[in-house]
Nucleic acid binder design. Sequence first.
DNA 1: CCATTTCAAATTGTCAACAATACTGAGTCT
DNA 2: AGACTCAGTATTGTTGACAATTTGAAATGG
Lengths: 241, 241
Amino acid sequence: MGTSAEPARSRRAGRSMPDRVDEAHIVERIYSAVMEHRLPPAQKLSELKLCEAFGVGRMRVRRALLLLSDQGIVELESNRGAFVASPSRTEANEIFDARSVLEPAIAKQVAAEISSESLAMLKQHVLLEDEARESGKGADLIRLSGEFHVKLALASGNSVLRRVVRELVTRSSLIVGLYGTSNRTVCPDHEHSDMLGDIERGDSDAAAAQMFAHLIGIRAGLDLSTTRPEEGDLKDILGLS
Amino acid sequence: MGTSAEPARSRRAGRSMPDRVDEAHIVERIYSAVMEHRLPPAQKLSELKLCEAFGVGRMRVRRALLLLSDQGIVELESNRGAFVASPSRTEANEIFDARSVLEPAIAKQVAAEISSESLAMLKQHVLLEDEARESGKGADLIRLSGEFHVKLALASGNSVLRRVVRELVTRSSLIVGLYGTSNRTVCPDHEHSDMLGDIERGDSDAAAAQMFAHLIGIRAGLDLSTTRPEEGDLKDILGLS
DNA sequence: CCATTTCAAATTGTCAACAATACTGAGTCT
DNA sequence: AGACTCAGTATTGTTGACAATTTGAAATGG
């Protein structure tokens, strides 16, 4: 077949062998770094640095940054460059509001019909979480804790849902980094496990309720009260109110 | 040829709000064209044509197309260019599955707490729909019918929800164009109005149920059975199965 | 000592030329 | 006629250079 071009090898190739680095790969890596709290909010993402880090031309980096900015992971400031996003408290509340609406519905759906493989995957994941918690691997636990939500969406078998949740969870990771009050708040102990129990039992309403409560709990561990001045509110900052 | 860039578009007089054409504007316009069924699936989107259509350099067009492809509105084929997406039946089912999960939850949320202004806006919108239906303005009705869902999400006051729904609705517009069985199926008569009644009454469960039923109804007006060969299944197409 | 100005370096935004690939149509052969 | 080949053309992908802007620090003055 002459044609072709072999569009793109399966996406799975990305981890081990960076044979072909396209913008999707760069996006993935930055996603992961944000989820693991290795890229802090407001971190400058220099084009040059990224170019040499990935061994790639400037165009690829720019395209990746554009995609990331469209998803709210990165903020592009004209003539100043790209920075890891630092969501305001208002944005943070918006994101958690959205999660509180969408994710219980997804949990409900997953609980209603889940394949045995997906269930096994989720169980395995919760085991990893427990392990990380007991080993004191805080960084891993943070990442796994967010990944659970993505994998839950993945368990729906619906790539659209997975994509939506992934974006929200990644932005939430930035929010936790910014407004988290203690290191422990991020880790809701056994709530994931409880939720999984509801799912296994097929109790979709309980799963939805558990997800909702879980998100409330995460938010409670953050300092998102907007009584404090919104970022950039000069009057308050200068004490002129 | 000549090209680029310096055509006589100097409208410096009104710099206030007008035609600053950035990639977001291009994206918006293509979104609208798809929602109004003026851009059919698989339509070629030539870079040159878009450049002169928007009076803009190639870079802007390329960035817009990249964003659109990331959202599934456009498909980029290597060395062949950009085409309006034509979702397969499998993708179409995935999108409607996602909508059936997410949008009832959004409707529920909106019904639980909606501002009077938002309610008025939705009522106004339904009036426009009725008007278009009675005037036989099919094109307008198609657009308005989709826009209702976006405006409903907008009524949540949450830009994240709005964005998610907008993407799904736009892709659904392509799906309807591809797999719609009759012109009338797109227009669910008075279901939007009924849903608005539930919302006004604050009956969130009824609103959610109504939304779910509504989406089922839309899907029923499509031919999405996957018994037919998936696109590109050569064995079946050639009768070798 | 602090504030302001000025200038050089660095970074980003834009464009235009070049390379690579796909498409078109005429021509050729069986 | 139909299928195939093969240039020529058109379109996309990529690179590099240049312009515009910001950044940072040295120099200047109060």
